[in-house]
Nucleic acid binder design. Structure first.
Lengths: 146, 146
DNA sequence: CCTTGACCTGGAGCGCGCTCCAGGTCCTAA
DNA sequence: TTAGGACCTGGAGCGCGCTCCAGGTCAAGG
């Protein structure tokens, strides 16, 4: 994504690391530990830039990608699959059909899961209705049906 | 739930254990190991009946309860909370308000989680849309915008 | 110069929810 | 009488996704 140094003299601000890991954590809602973990596990597109102090410097592009990762994770995609997806992106444009397939399969699983959860939730809400009914009838009048 | 031997001579078929653990597993979609685990962890209302062979015999009431447990678990309620809920049910009718509260809090968390998942899914579907568009434009015509 | 604090690395630890295993008991059918 | 199969118990092991820690480096401020 975005090959710098192809056109202008200024190398594209988006790919230049400016955010500390604490910033990145705040921006993405992850912990610094999780960010390091994601990098170790190959979920990022490249290793994050370093300052001379060897501190990580996240670019805006990095943050954008990490936000996408949190969305995948937030819909239950396992780390392993995120890694695969990242590998495809890294491998170049010709993997776009494969990426599409991966995302669509994920979406289908999520939709199935959503339906299933809603179904289960309905049963629970039914139960709630029963308890509520009993609370309404039992509390004010006392000694009805028992 | 349901005190047998209060009225008739036949002790209420629902509370009489008839299903083997393999049956129960088939009926509930859990593994035999998971069923034993749930019992150990106090998710069931009482210890399951045993045959003379010390094999477990699940009653229909047991199965009904376990099905409810799978619905709670299927909406993401942690084992620990299911245990609390079971303890409330065990403790008697006077805990109904507490059970109601527990279930309503759970439902709210689930609804929040559903909304969040849908939000994340939307972003992913947007991404899918982009890939699809590119696939449609790129494949048939060849050499457009590149 | 010394402290402070943000961050680094490698690796261990943890909470969760099962899952698997060894070694044993019991019942049934051949 | 013996073999097979279903199940038992106690306890270890596992996959996941972080989280925590010790010991160290580096840059800035007092």
């Amino acid at each position: 994504m975005a090959t710098a140094t192809t056109a202008g003299v200024t190398p594209d601000p988006g790919t230049l690391g400016t955010h500390s890991i604490a910033d990145a954590a705040r921006e993405t809602g992850l912990s610094p530990d999780a960010l390091r973990y994601y990098e170790r596990e190959g979920l990022l597109l490249q290793p994050v830039d370093r300052a001379s102090s060897s501190h990580r410097r996240y670019s805006d592009v990095d943050l954008g990608w990490i936000r996408l990762v949190t969305k995948l994770r937030g819909t239950g995609m396992p780390i392993r699959s995120v890694r695969e997806y990242a590998a495809l992106v890294r491998a170049g444009e010709h993997t776009e059909p494969a990426r599409l397939e991966l995302l669509e399969e994920h979406r289908d699983r999520v939709l199935t899961q959503l339906r299933e959860t809603r179904r289960n939730l309905e049963a629970i809400e039914h139960k709630i209705g029963i308890y509520r009914e009993r609370a309404d009838c039992g509390a004010p009048e006392r000694s009805v049906t028992r």
